[in-house]
Design a protein around this nucleic acid. Structure first.
Length: 259
DNA sequence: ATGGCAAATATCATTTGA
């Protein structure tokens, strides 16, 4: 079983590129973020034609998440991490007895901004959702665009990014709470090298210059970690030339599990 | 501290992203 997470930066703008990637990689579960459309605007037929079940939690223009799966989910949660959150940022599906949580964590704009306060609250409430709906003893994968670089080795220029958005101590403390709760950063089980990024700034041509951040993660509980074979960032997708469609500013990250 | 690029809306400019 292979589980992918990918911030596509609009599923409609990226559709043919996403389909080509699916045809090539054949993942079993795909967690998408920033679909940037309403549920009824999601191009579900194209994915269903390829054998994927589609669950979306969208909104107009911004945010929005979706889970594609070869096996239909037995249970679906929306409105994560809390019922009255006005932004569509969290969906979960139970697929083959694994609970897959797909998150588009708040960006935060900059440290101290009201959006930053919302980000910290959002992450606090995520802990409450996890406590209420699952446990570290479950088969659980919490993945998505966390908008947090957990460590300085995940940042191309830690001095420039020191205590800035995506790298600030309160954000990293929230990430650490997830680990303390019982989740493991699966990528770091297989790759301890610095300089492994999943996002690059389009404006400064960060990808071409090797300047990025690792902010997209697949966190797993110990019971699921036992089945993990590999976790890797798909740089080939990001680097690929496509007819007319530009890449997202994020690369997919893929976790491979046995059976 | 600011700009650069990209996407969505229905705008010929603004908001948001990270």
């Amino acid at each position: 079983m292979r589980i992918a997470t990918w911030n596509v930066n609009s599923i409609r703008a990226r559709l043919d590129r996403a389909l080509d990637w699916l045809d090539d990689r054949q993942p079993d579960v795909v967690c998408l973020q920033e679909i940037k459309c309403l549920d009824e605007q999601f191009p579900r037929a194209a994915f269903e034609a390829r054998g994927y079940h589609v669950e979306t939690y969208g909104q107009k223009t911004y945010n929005g998440v979706a889970i594609l799966s070869r096996t239909p989910p037995t249970e679906v949660f929306r409105r994560i991490p809390w019922e009255d959150d006005e932004q569509a940022r969290g969906i979960a599906c139970r697929i083959d007895d694994v609970l897959i949580v797909d998150l588009y964590v708040v960006n935060g704009k900059q440290v101290g901004d009201p959006k930053y306060t919302y980000k910290l609250e959002w992450l606090d409430r995520l802990m409450d959702w996890l406590d209420a709906h699952t446990s570290p003893d479950d088969l659980l994968c919490v993945c998505g665009d966390y908008n947090i670089a957990p460590d300085d080795i995940d940042v191309h220029d830690p001095v420039a990014w020191h205590e800035r958005i995506l790298c600030s101590t309160p954000e990293r403390e929230r990430f650490q709470r997830l680990l303390d709760w019982g989740l493991v950063d699966s990528f770091r089980q297989f790759d301890d090298r610095p300089g492994q990024y999943s996002w690059w700034d389009m404006r400064t041509r960060g990808f071409e210059r090797g300047q990025g951040l690792r902010i997209d993660h697949l966190l797993v509980t110990e019971p699921l970690l036992e089945a993990a074979l590999d976790c890797a960032i798909d740089l080939d997708e990001r680097a690929r030339e496509h007819d007319s469609i530009k890449p997202s500013d994020h690369a997919p990250v893929v976790l491979a599990l046995e059976a």
